[in-house]
Amino acid sequence: MTDSNAFLGLLTILVLAVFVGFEVISKVPTTLHTPLMSATNAIHGIVLIGAMVTIAALFGSGVHSPLLVGAATAAVTLGAINVFGGFAVTERMLQMFRRKDNAPK
């Protein structure tokens, strides 16, 4: 992030994304609020990509120490927990929602 134009561009994106978020999320019915939360857990797992960029930058820079490598790897791990766990648990919940009672009696 170098110049102020780039910053203003990203700030614009942030503000617009917040509005899109409110608009889309406000349509989610209360019955799906728990899967919504776990799905957003998976989506903020995008931080995994941030962690990948960071650990690559760390190895490209002159400062890498075991502590920093450990911290960056931990960030990758936590991000991966979010991505894989978030989507898996959302899928597991959503497949339980059904319109009609078709359970074996």
């Binding site: 994304a17 917040v18 899109v20 978020g21 999320i25 919504l36 957003t40 903020h44 995008i46």
Partner: peptide, 8 residues
């Protein structure tokens, strides 16, 4: 993605 989750 952060903004979407934050809004939610």
């Amino acid at each position: 993605c952060g903004a979407l989750v934050g809004a939610s």
